[in-house]
Structure formats: structure tokens, C-alpha cells
Design a binder for these strands. Structure first.
Length: 168
DNA sequence: TTAGTGATATCC
DNA sequence: GATATCACTAAA
């Protein structure tokens, strides 16, 4: 079954682990449906989280973080890679979950590329008919780890275990 | 280990 | 208008 608004309308620290094992579906204009099971997520939470884009203040680029839960936040990183996030929690509280990998796509850039998710989806919703998540009953063990690629965030935020990985 | 890539923020 | 930076990847 498809995940609905209440699933995302929770703290990102709850949504991130729950999203691992779910299936992300992208329906293309021609009707093709691309699917990928999420294998890894990371949580980014609030302006005080130095790893979160929101810590730099509200800008045109990151203002989607303040939107209502279920919003799609896709941005370009290193000029090449589209990174996809789901907005979670209350509106006006900047937080979200980064989709870091799928079972067949090892890395956030590879995940979006294999599902053909790019910045044209930025600002749309995971509650609509273009991209959504499905729970097919799959369950698995998880392990946690520190987040990746935020060397600048300082010791505390760099080490906090807000990354969830599927254990095969 | 390192080049490649381009939008964004931050400084003139 | 110029520049530094970046939640990464592929090739070597």
C-alpha cells in the first residue's frame, strides 16, 4: 500500500528508519513505472543541525525544507548529481530525509539517476501520482552509522548516527 | 587519489 | 560580476 501523509508527518528521526525497505516508485509521462527499494537513508533536522542545509538560513534553494511533509526536495550537488529528500514533520520546522541508496543503486546520485528523478520534480509531492512510496510488507534489520559527506559540520553533528542502512 | 561538473551563496 | 563551495561518482 502507498504511504500517506501521516507517515511523513512525524519527526525525521522516526521517518528515516521507517523508510528503509519501502519501495520508491516514479511514474514517467509515458506510463512506465520505475521502482527501487530504499536501502539507506539519512535524517537532517533543524537549523541547529550543522549538516542540514537549513543551518545556513532560509534561502530560495533550501526553503522547501520548511514546507509541509511529503514535499519533494531535489537539488544538484557537485554539478552532476541530483540528491532527493523527503520533507517530514511539521511545516515551518525544517527537516527531511535524504534517500541515500537503493538495493540496486549504491549512492544518492545513482539512486536518482536510475529512477530518473531530477530537479524538475523539486517542489512536487510524494503524495501525488508521479512519485510515491509503497509498503509491500518487506521488513529487515537496520544498523545505524554517522552521516556521510558533511566534514564541515563539526564534531558533534558529523558523528551523530542519523544514517540508517539495511542489513541484508 | 583525483578530475569533472554547474547551481548557489557570498563576496566584491 | 567573480569566486569558493558542495549531503558525489567514475576512472585510475
Amino acid at each position: 500500500m502507498r504511504l500517506t501523509e501521516p507517515f511523513f508527518h512525524r519527526d525525521c528521526l522516526k521517518v528515516a528508519p521507517d523508510l528503509v525497505g519501502k519501495v520508491l516508485v516514479h511514474r514517467l509521462p509515458d506510463g512506465t513505472e520505475l521502482r527501487e527499494r530504499i536501502a539507506e537513508t539519512e535524517a537532517y533536522r533543524g537549523t541547529e543541525d550543522l549538516g542540514c542545509h537549513a543551518s545556513k538560513g532560509r534561502t530560495p534553494r533550501n526553503e522547501l525544507l520548511w514546507r509541509q511533509s511529503g514535499t519533494v526536495y531535489v537539488y544538484l550537488c557537485y554539478g552532476i548529481h541530483n540528491l532527493a529528500n523527503v520533507i517530514t514533520g511539521e511545516a515551518e520546522q525544517p527537516q527531511g530525509v535524504l534517500l541515500r541508496a537503493g538495493v540496486n543503486a549504491d549512492g544518492p546520485g545513482k539512486l536518482t539517476r536510475s529512477l530518473q528523478i531530477d530537479r524538475t520534480l523539486n517542489g512536487s509531492s510524494f503524495l501525488g501520482d508521479t512519485v510515491w512510496f509503497e509498503d509491500d510488507g518487506f521488513r529487515c534489520e537496520l544498523r545505524t552509522a554517522p552521516r556521510v559527506g558533511i566534514e564541515y559540520a563539526g564534531d558533534y553533528w558529523k558523528k551523530i548516527p542519523w544514517r540508517w542502512i539495511m542489513v541484508p
